[in-house]
């Protein structure tokens, strides 16, 4: 890994092969470091990206090298995220699409085309409380009477 350290400027510059590390992963990793370093990106996303990390607090040679190492680790993390996101894109789109379509049909007519009124109860769910618990309430009443 080639890198250049400029101690007076408190910065380290290194190069990334864009074929290995897509620009989306670099953005992600850079964002994680935004509170610890000033980040400058240059180069060509089709060939090679130049990363320059400038420490916000004064760092020595080793610390700057460590910063670069951490950046690589974070880059790997984001690389995996980008790969998984690409791999699951179709499934994700399908799930979101299905959710949106089913959500938009709530107030439309039923899927079979018939215009069901909200008072219709094709599944027989809308049973009044009194009818549903008729037996239970009758038993309770009897129990109450006997206990008194």
């Amino acid at each position: 890994m080639k890198f250049q350290i400029n101690s007076p400027k408190n910065q380290i510059t290194f190069f990334l092969d864009s074929k290995l590390y897509p620009i989306e992963a670099i953005y992600g990793a850079a964002y994680v470091f935004i509170d610890r370093a000033y980040i400058f990106l240059d180069g060509d996303p089709q060939k090679e990206i130049i990363i320059c990390l400038k420490g916000k607090k004064k760092m020595n040679f080793k610390e700057l090298e460590g910063l670069q190492g951490e950046f690589y680790n974070e880059l790997l993390n984001y690389l995996l995220r980008v790969k998984i996101a690409k791999r699951n894109k179709k499934v994700r789109d399908f799930i979101v699409g299905t959710a949106l379509v089913s959500g938009s049909n709530i107030f439309d007519s039923s899927p079979d085309g018939s215009d069901n009124d909200y008072l219709d109860d094709p599944l027989g769910i809308a049973v009044p409380w009194e009818d549903k618990y008729k037996e239970n309430t009758a038993k309770k009443k009897k129990q109450d009477e006997t206990s008194v």
């Binding site: 850079a30 964002y31 000033y38």
Partner: peptide, 13 residues
Amino acid sequence: EDEFSNYALSLMK
């Protein structure tokens, strides 16, 4: 300048 550059980068995400 450094903060401005960082902010511009953060807006990219």
